[in-house]
Design a protein around this nucleic acid. Structure first.
Lengths: 144, 144
DNA sequence: GAGCCAGTTGTTATTATGTAACGGCAATAT
DNA sequence: ATATTGCCGTTACATAATAACAACTGGCTC
């Protein structure tokens, strides 16, 4: 386990306990596993495998928790997850840039895109609850 | 089977043969089944069930074809499919408004949104290949 | 401390979703 | 007619996710 992972876990622990949430062993382990993939996406069963001796159910439950806490994102178009350590503003409205080669995920937080979509959908009288915005392609490093 | 479905199938047949594509029985049946769901999303296995006596593989193959031809869309966030009859411009860059109550899907074709995203991602040197933009919420009818 | 409650975990089984592989058949091309 | 290509049927399998229920844990209250 990378040193950085340990640090991050410790920092998260602090934040969660402050919030009154329980950062249990299972949750820590899954978060750690996710972080070890180093900003690339990981499938639930990748984590199951990486952890060894754990049941899928355990991993899915932990992932649900992490997503709810904004510590991970689910990437719908890949059935995968990415860790998220930075705590940005709302966190509900992000857009993901997913490199299909190196699998790294970057987040955009364009209020402009949000506003734009809100404006366009308002015309239809559509009431937005959640948005899935996942942009696939090649990151700058992988274009070489 | 609705009368409208038959018409639509016939129209598609014509268009596909003009393109040199084969609109086989399996493909027709799956397209018809998809249309019968009447603009709501359908899961692959819903179609398997609706058709009876068909294997999943058959349905998945037909769906792949239909998606490739722009006659259906895959909704990643639902693992589902929606028919698409109108032939709009590029067809690669649409945004979907998905009502979580009635399951109807509407398409936006906002060049503005596209341009905006292109502009934002250009800053990161990210080269876009495909975009998944799926907006969930309630359509105007279902808000009442 | 004893009892209680909500949240969490362990375990098993099951459902849902999607593919691989291969042989045969059908349409088209040479 | 024969080769080639694409399509289909079938079986088996792989991957993704959830249901259900019992047991445990941590913090409450009395």
């Amino acid at each position: 386990m990378q040193a950085k992972t340990k640090e991050t876990i410790a920092a998260i622990e602090e934040k969660l306990t402050a919030k009154g949430e329980r950062f249990t062993d299972a949750r820590q382990s899954v978060m750690a596993a996710l972080l070890e993939f180093d900003a690339t996406t990981a499938k639930a069963y990748d984590i199951v495998e990486a952890m060894g001796n754990v049941k899928p159910m355990t991993v899915y439950r932990a992932l649900d928790f992490l997503v709810a806490q904004g510590l991970a994102h689910r990437i719908e178009s890949l059935n995968a997850y990415a860790p998220c350590v930075e705590n940005h503003c709302a966190h509900k409205d992000s857009q993901y840039l997913i490199c299909d080669k190196c699998e790294k995920v970057e987040e955009l937080h364009s209020h402009a895109i949000d506003d734009f979509i809100a404006e366009q959908t308002a015309k239809d009288g559509f009431k937005i609850s959640t948005k899935v915005i996942e942009i696939h392609g090649l990151c700058s490093s992988c274009q070489l």
